[in-house]
Amino acid sequence: MTLRIGLEPQPQLDAVLGLLSAAGLPVAAVHGLQRQPGIVEDGDVAWVRAPGGDLLSWCQGGGLDLAVVGKESLLEDEPEVYELLDLRVAPATLVFATAAATGEGRSGRLRVATRFPRLTARHFAAGGLQVQPVGLTSDATIAVSLGLADGVVELDTLLAEAASGLVRRDTVAPCGARLVAGRAARALRGAEVAALVVRLRDLLAQR
């Protein structure tokens, strides 16, 4: 039976694919995936590329067996999946950053644009700062440029790329690519999933 694996369209996709290929999975067809979301079959594997949140929904619903997603998506959705392995590729840190002019002593609520509104609300609920998360589905720095938000919660790698001029104020969580399995895959295809995890673990140990 086809193993269905989800991939996020992340910048370090090649590193992820290199690891999966070394673990014996047929990854060649993935490069031919132009559309997103998209699906392509290669031998016994069906590759699905889509945003992390969607992949996690499908893992929970039993539509996908495995997925490689960023930790930030797992923190945002808190899905009921098995988080099996830190693949140690694409390490990044989720940070809180504000425009340089936003003073530390500013009172009242800060508007924080982010793709991770629930995670943001949770993070700041534990601390002293009051924030109003502004949920977006794309680059949050634009919202600051447009004056819609005072700051962002975003991966530091993306902030550097955007050359946004935002100043990092706080670390929210360390992130990186994780291999996850749906509960159904774990119950019904446990041996296949376990074999893959063992191979990946060995590969990671050699690095």
Partner: peptide, 13 residues
């Protein structure tokens, strides 16, 4: 511990 958790669903666990 890793093995017991990884090998869920298999006899080796």
């Amino acid at each position: 511990l890793q093995a017991a958790l990884t090998l869920g669903g298999t006899r080796d666990s």
